[in-house]
């Protein structure tokens, strides 16, 4: 009987302390205390300090991209129409790169956290012929939502697993601030290059 009572008391104590537990949660995005992010300008999207995986399976944060300009967009690999066009638009931009663009990275963030695993992204990059300066990122649903909000890209998952989404590409400066935004597909490379060249 004594054992039972002490067990009960222990349970009650656990219960009461659980009540006081609230406030200890929160994903990294709402508490940017990370060393890397603390120095960033207020409007830098790199303040989102989620952990992403790239196509090599390496864990990275957006703040790791600091120091060089970035061309960024969101896609998913099972996309049959729009995303191939978007990637093509990006390739058109890349085809006009000169030496000074050697450190500019292309970053593709996937909407599809379930299917676009690092392996899948690696295969996609290979099929598309994307070089070393292309990063394809995989993350969880929450971080995808947050990055989409910061970029103002609306999207919705459909019953068949595909995504309806806006098509936007961004030029980010060395600190992760959006310098230029281009909406649409089969777009002209010139305005993007013009913006990019301002940073170099």
């Amino acid at each position: 009987m004594k054992t039972v009572i002490s067990v009960l008391i222990a349970l009650m104590l656990i219960g009461f302390s659980a009540q006081a537990q609230q406030g200890k949660c929160c994903s990294p995005s709402s508490t940017p205390t990370n060393e890397k992010t603390v120095q960033l300008p207020e409007t830098s999207i790199y303040q989102l300090d989620h952990q992403w995986e790239n196509q090599s399976g390496k864990s990275i944060q957006l703040a790791d991209l600091q120091g060089n300009p970035v061309i960024l967009t969101m896609i998913f690999t099972h996309c049959e129409y729009a995303c191939p066009m978007m990637v093509n638009d990006l390739k058109q931009i890349e085809s006009q790169f000169t030496d000074k663009h050697s450190k500019t990275k292309f970053v593709l963030i996937s909407f599809d956290h379930e299917r676009d695993t690092p392996e899948r992204l690696r295969d996609y990059a290979s099929v598309q012929g994307l070089g070393e300066n292309w990063l394809l990122l995989h993350g969880n649903a929450e971080q995808i939502k947050e990055i989409s909000l910061v970029l103002d890209i609306s999207y919705e998952q459909l019953e068949n697993g595909a995504f309806a989404h806006a098509n936007k590409k961004f030029v980010l400066d060395q600190n992760g601030i959006i310098l230029f935004e281009q909406e649409g597909l089969q777009t002209k490379a010139d305005p993007v290059l013009k913006a990019l060249n301002k940073l170099l």
């Binding site: 609306s154 068949n160 098509n167």
Partner: peptide, 28 residues
């Protein structure tokens, strides 16, 4: 709401019939 940005639409609310060139990939 959590996914308020799930409504894929153009800002001009009259374009309901067209699939505006910028929005595709399975969007009805």
């Amino acid at each position: 709401v959590y996914d308020f940005n799930s409504v894929v639409s153009s800002n001009d609310s009259r374009n309901k019939e067209e699939i505006a060139s910028g929005f595709f990939c399975g969007s009805a």
